[in-house]
Design a protein around this nucleic acid. Structure first.
Lengths: 210, 210
DNA sequence: CATTGTGAACGGATTCACAGCC
DNA sequence: GGCTGTGAATCCGTTCACAATG
């Protein structure tokens, strides 16, 4: 029985990587995998992988390794992907549209159920089968579909207001692409994925003087 | 004189945040800022900000704070943004195109100088003023423009091959959007910004059972 | 006297080493 | 014999407390 204790943030960031590797192993018909093999596939150390999993239970067999299907299903449960997760995208510019399409193709566990914008020229058009709605529709929509995760791709100036709006109606986790440091309530998690800062910090490592 | 000692990765990730805040303060004509004010604007603690900056020198004035313009210019130097940085985007799908446009608008310090793809229907078309080139042109291009940073937005199956190609001709830092764990040489930095894993780890925090 | 810069204390995550088990 | 699970040791970044100083 997985104990849902507070696991370190870094552990939580690695679980989806394990999940992807296990998905691939299961697809290839491989039944058992050792922490050493997972290490080779993920780049994390074998000890770290074992410790990570130990936060949630003992899923392996000593002398043998981990049953791939069993471990995959456990990780799905731990992350909370065993129930369908509905998320919304706020901001339907080029980036918002691209992320929506990208996710539909690449993420088997997560459904984008709504895309929102304010631009009258954008509202009403479609991304795949999704119609872009006005931001004013967010509260009603979030409640109807029990949305708890939002992706924000609006301009920096509008981002804080959008955050206030979505956290106000039940969203508990935000993936923020706007180049801004945003304030969120205590119980809301936000992850900044701003391309600008990401690229700038990479440049530090690429500069000739090491 | 900034000592270019090894600074923790986490410090390097915060520098661009400080830079953005300082850019804004300078634009608003504010001459001096304290670590406490930077803390309020960034969400990091004042002590942490002072320690971060101390890795590179003593840039403040005791009793007063930091000169905004001076500190901004120092951070630009430390990151390596004082010389123009040319980067390329490999993969001109929806995401690659969106990131290219996004960066042109939002990142004053970084120029995307080339975009590459293999699809015959895509090669030859344009994103803004940039013509999309075939991947075969990468080596020549990277050398001509001294490119040391690449953004990768190709499908997962093609990502490792692209990494091998670009690291083979001088690229030292990679921002990877493909859902894959990639192998890079010792001296190359890679940062994974895969939407799939990012979203999945957020879902852990959004699940009702905390 | 407010604020920086920093050694010391703290805490948390990773690594090590090995006991436990198939 | 081989691999997992885990307490102990280690490492590293953050926080604390205060000395230094314009």
């Amino acid at each position: 029985m997985p104990r849902r204790l507070a696991a370190p943030k870094q552990v939580i960031k690695r679980l989806p990587v394990y999940l992807r590797i296990l998905d691939d192993l299961v697809r290839r018909g491989i039944k058992v995998v050792s922490s050493r093999e997972l290490s080779a596939a993920s780049g994390f150390t074998a000890e770290q992988i074992r410790k990570d999993l130990a936060h949630f239970g003992a899923f392996g067999t000593r002398g043998t390794g981990y049953n791939t299907t069993f471990l995959r299903d456990k990780i799905i449960q731990i992350i909370g992907l065993d129930r369908p997760t509905n998320i919304i995208v706020v901001g339907a510019g080029h980036l918002g549209k691209a992320l929506t399409r990208y996710n539909a193709i690449n993420n088997p566990y997560v459904n984008i159920v709504g895309v929102f914008d304010t631009d009258p020229g954008t509202v009403g058009s479609r991304i795949g089968s999704l119609k872009i709605l006005h931001l004013l529709k967010i509260p009603e929509f979030v409640k109807r579909y029990c949305v708890r995760v939002a992706i924000i791709t609006v301009p920096a100036e509008a981002a804080q207001q959008v955050v206030n709006q979505v956290t106000g109606c039940g969203v508990k986790a935000i993936l923020n692409f706007a180049p801004a440091q945003l304030q969120v309530p205590e119980d809301v998690h936000i992850h900044n994925a701003d391309l600008t800062t990401e690229l700038q910090s990479l440049i530090y490592y690429a500069t000739p003087g090491k």
